[in-house]
Design a binder for these strands. Structure first.
Lengths: 105, 105
DNA sequence: ATCACCTGCAACTCAATAGTTGCAGAAGAT
DNA sequence: ATCTTCTGCAACTATTGAGTTGCAGGTGAT
């Protein structure tokens, strides 16, 4: 089941640095230390971001020996997108209905 | 064209109060003052949120006499959802490819 | 056993932002 | 013309969060 609250997911996605991290993970799993070599922030900052991303289910930790690699979960992203789309369509539908009533049809 | 940067849109959607506002607007256009009567925050706070939402194209101001009503743009939400889904699918695809290579297929 | 490296926790700084109050100004209503 | 009401601007507070440095603890490699 992947239905954490919707809003925290967007809050997690509302940060450029986290997108850099997600983009980097999109090219293969990596640890916080490995990511720190490619990004202009410290390992600890990245670790915090990864914790946020893991909290909302966008990323998943995988122990490999003494390091902890992270895997991006694209499916969760798509699921979130689906829910967002549903909300958007619902509002469009309801507002269209209101408009018709207002026009006296 | 509705392609503002993607990240600020998520940042805008990462706030509970703004979702309350969007939900209220989903039941019909309303002004900041009208919204302030239904929500537990001041009009000015709502005005700021509406400015943020308008900035990223999720909402649109409409002058009606001396008041300014806001209309929620569900289509923009759906467009954002589509872009999000595309990113998610892309990552899944790439990671699946990497996995196959790693397994020596 | 020792060394190197990676993770995790804690304390701190600084900037951004959600929220407030207060006031000035413009546009309908009477 | 006056009164009401709605909007917009400005200053201020407080909280959150991004980022840092420093250090302690484990785990694999030699």
């Amino acid at each position: 089941m992947s239905s954490a609250a919707l809003v925290p997911v967007f809050a997690a996605l509302g940060d450029e640095t986290r997108w850099s991290i997600l983009a980097a993970l999109g090219e293969g799993d990596a640890s916080a230390s490995a990511l720190a070599e490619r990004l202009p922030v410290t390992r600890q900052a990245i670790a915090k971001h990864l914790a946020v991303l893991a909290e909302v289910g966008l990323v998943e930790p995988v122990r490999v020996g003494r390091e902890v690699r992270y895997r991006v979960l694209g499916a969760e992203l798509s699921a979130t997108a689906a829910r967002l789309d549903a909300v958007g369509r619902d509002w469009e539908r309801r507002l269209a209905a209101i408009k018709e009533i207002a026009e006296g049809l």
